[in-house]
Design a protein around this nucleic acid. Structure first.
Length: 109
DNA sequence: GGTTTGACCCGTT
DNA sequence: CAACGGGCCAAAC
């Protein structure tokens, strides 16, 4: 399967209130060192896919650069709406919200 | 076809 | 937690 397709499909499945990391998505898509490519793919993802891109963060729970999300308050505000909890340092509490998909996530369909 | 550029990641300080 | 250095890889120039 195509790398981009795999990434897009995975992002589409991240549930509300949970987050995935770029590296994690790269790993699940069979390209362990392709984290930067995941970022690239999200940047140019077709709008019609309506992907929950705000649920993708850095491994340390920090966000994408300011200004990427047109939404007022940015990525953080979008996550707050899903009742995501943050650390005192202002990052996503990964211990709680990291997404753990079932192993067969890619084999379906 | 070499160089620069990123929605990255990791270890060290 | 922040700052730095080094590694990473495909696109864009």
């Amino acid at each position: 399967m195509d790398f981009a397709q795999s990434v897009y499909r995975l992002v589409a499945q991240i549930p509300r209130g949970r987050v995935a990391t770029y590296g994690q998505l790269a790993m699940l898509s069979g390209r362990p060192r392709g984290a930067r490519q995941v970022g690239f793919l999200l940047a140019r993802a077709p709008d019609m896919l309506k992907l929950p891109c705000h649920r993708v963060v850095h491994t340390d729970g920090s966000f994408a650069p300011e200004g990427l999300f047109s939404y007022p308050g940015g990525q953080r505000a979008l996550l707050e709406q899903e009742e995501v909890r943050f650390t005192p340092g202002g990052r996503v509490d990964m211990r709680v919200h990291i997404w753990r998909p079932q192993p067969d996530i890619l084999s379906k369909r």
